[in-house]
Design a protein around this nucleic acid. Structure first.
Length: 269
DNA sequence: AGCTCATGGCGAG
DNA sequence: TCGCCCTGAGCTG
């Protein structure tokens, strides 16, 4: 599930469950035991999401940096926490809640400098109020890479993953293979605005849901969805099925090491 | 039970 | 661009 909306939700959830109070931190299995010991008993002062990176800020100017990667998950629940099943990299507990982190690609302790170093490498995040889409535009408008590849580059835009990439390009009717430098400013502004709207909705709902109301399931009599990531989508993982808008077969192709999905008829601009 | 694939990203070459 | 890391769900048999 981890695109940017998931991480922003987690930042809010960690703050809600543990914020402002000392927490118990442990690493029942795995290599983070030393890091967990250092924040054990410290107060969770703030949490922050930037793109797909989660930062948990503890007293003592220590940050726990988490990246879920493709497989990472957080399970939040009410205490008493069950005995850990499988590898739990970080368990936080306190005030009636517990949170288990499994399978992250990163879980490490950083100081302020380490955190800033990571954030300096990240492009603007559509979910952050301080995001400046101009920074992304400068890179995109000078690049010969495809807009599909550019949207997935976390140094250019952060938080967008394979689902939002496919869906925003569909919604804007953009041919995913166009070079970044061929995009007009207005086209980029529209893509950015749609990312902001879609990802905010993702945070609110806890899933990626991109289908507009006029394209309701009943109206389209669409075939059943084939994946289970939880929301309604136009093209992501719908290869071979009919486009919800025009009926043309949705296409897929590996592009820059990731599966790209698009409608060849709706996305010609 | 075993295989494949997945919403990600890193380092080697 | 490739291989690899990591977990879990959904198939197949």
């Amino acid at each position: 599930m981890p695109e940017g909306h998931t991480i922003h939700r987690l930042a809010a959830e960690y703050a809600r469950c543990f914020g402002g109070r000392p927490v118990r931190a442990s690493s029942p299995q795995g290599p983070f035991a030393a890091g967990a010991a250092l924040v054990d008993g410290q107060t969770l002062e703030r949490t922050e999401a930037h793109g797909k990176h989660l930062f948990l800020g503890f007293s003592g100017r220590r940050w726990v940096h988490v990246h879920l990667g493709l497989y990472g998950k957080v399970h939040l629940g009410q205490e008493p926490a069950p005995a850990p099943v499988g590898q739990v990299r970080l368990r936080l507990a306190g005030d009636g809640h517990y949170a288990d982190l499994r399978g992250p690609s990163r879980c490490e302790l950083l100081d302020e400098g380490g955190k800033q170093k990571i954030q300096a490498r990240l492009g603007p995040d559509p979910l952050r109020p301080d995001a400046d889409p101009n920074l992304a535009w400068r890179r995109i408008s000078a690049s010969r890479k495809s807009v599909a590849a550019l949207l997935m580059d976390q140094q250019i835009v952060s938080g967008v993953g394979n689902v939002y990439r496919a869906e925003v390009l569909f919604r804007q009717g953009t041919d995913p293979f166009r070079e970044g430098r061929s995009l007009g400013r207005a086209e980029w502004d529209a893509l950015w605005a749609d990312l902001v709207a879609l990802m905010r909705e993702g945070v609110r709902l806890g899933r990626i849901d991109t289908v507009r109301p006029q394209h309701t399931p009943e109206a389209m009599r669409r075939p059943p969805r084939v994946d289970d990531h939880g929301g309604e989508v136009y093209v992501y993982r719908r290869a071979g099925l009919g486009c919800h808008v025009c009926g043309t077969e949705v296409r897929t192709e590996e592009h820059a090491a990731r599966n790209l999905f698009w409608c060849p008829r709706c996305q010609q601009r």
